[in-house]
Nucleic acid binder design. Structure first.
Lengths: 210, 210
DNA sequence: TGCTATTTATTGAACGTTCAATTAGGACTA
DNA sequence: TAGTCCTAATTGAACGTTCAATAAATAGCA
């Protein structure tokens, strides 16, 4: 039972291949503009094969967004354990992680994306699913705002608008994927570092390197 | 030929009503998910009426985006004439204008939106049209980057990455429309002011009010 | 080891529906 | 009557979905 070797792929493979392709295609072309034919062609199965793994195209969308958000949150938690336990360090680590997932996702199989999905995709889900996924988004926002507030009360940050600033930071991170081109002269790390610096300026961090 | 008053609206009315509805619906639901029936219902004509004014749905999309971008650019130019002729003042005026058009557009008839369209909509246009519209976007970007560079050379700003910072500013401005709710406790002017302040921090502006 | 039964995975055809687009023509104006 | 503005009816393609048929893998039993 080690490796499956013939024409029939071992179920898990096809299922995750479908989700991977859906993540990329939904992101690139949008949910409605991605037909089951597109999806099937990318995976190498017939359009109706999807219905073995998911009850509907809409449910596939739900599964994909859910997996994406959970992956983002898990990766974020892990990235934060490597950072110092101070607001500036944690905030910078968050931004770096955010930018990196956005930009590696745009050229690789696993397409991470956080608020992006919010645009039009979440609207296609039933109320309960949408609420569940927005909750994950909310947790991420609360982390950013909370970190800023903590920095302010400790004296390392200076801003009167932690919430608005948190949203602005998320906005600029989310946006990188619309313009970044891997063939350009800036690397992903370049952008991640600059964005981390920008976000420290935004929260009024004292000892800026300049 | 002055005013026509009967059942038949004076052509220009229907045409611009179609464009207004298209701007709002394309933005709210996306291009593909907006049917000609949706469009016609909002205007009060039959679905095929569109073909009197536009050769195709795709051409309507082109016309709408083109009008939106030109309106944005014109309004921006006008907003800048009211600002002092210094980089900090001009940059703040740009951000305020950007945020205001994004947020009034979400609740009003004329839906302004700049980079937003870039996401998936421009991809549906033929190459020539897309290139033409991206040129307008590029002009706006060049203004932001140029203003930052000017501020740096004059000594009022301090940053090594004018281009990246310009994109980050555009990104956070573009993003406000995804989360702003008019019924919340912050007004459009509140957000516009805060974002202008944030963007001055990002470019290393010296005399910050704090 | 071999034969059969069952479950797992996939296909291709067909469905009802929706869509953008076409056509032919009607109502109104000048 | 000619031109403008719009509708109703229709078309063909594409869509998500269902389903019967089937092949491949697995399990049970001799």
């Amino acid at each position: 039972m080690a490796v499956s070797r013939s024409k029939q792929k071992s179920s898990e493979e096809t299922r995750s291949a479908l989700m991977d392709s859906a993540a990329r295609l939904f992101r690139e072309k949008g949910y409605d503009s991605t037909s089951l034919k597109d999806l099937a062609l990318a995976v190498g199965v017939s359009p109706s094969a999807m219905y073995w793994y998911f009850p509907s195209k809409n449910d596939l969308l739900y599964s994909v967004i859910k997996r994406t958000l959970h992956r983002f949150e898990d990766g974020m938690t892990q990235a934060l354990t490597k950072a110092d336990d101070t607001p500036p360090s944690r905030l910078a680590a968050f931004v770096r992680y955010y930018v990196e997932t956005q930009l590696s996702g745009s050229s690789e199989v696993a397409a991470y994306s956080y608020v992006y999905a919010t645009g039009h995709m979440l609207d296609r889900l039933p109320d309960a699913s949408r609420a569940e996924l927005r909750d994950i988004e909310r947790r991420i926002f609360h982390f950013v705002r909370g970190t800023i507030e903590q920095g302010v009360s400790e004296g390392s940050f200076a801003t009167d608008y932690a919430g608005t600033t948190a949203l602005a930071i998320i906005g600029m991170c989310e946006h990188v994927q619309t313009w970044f081109r891997p063939e350009g002269r800036d690397t992903v790390e370049d952008i991640a570092d600059r964005y981390a610096g920008l976000c420290l300026s935004m929260v009024g961090h004292r000892d800026d390197r300049r």
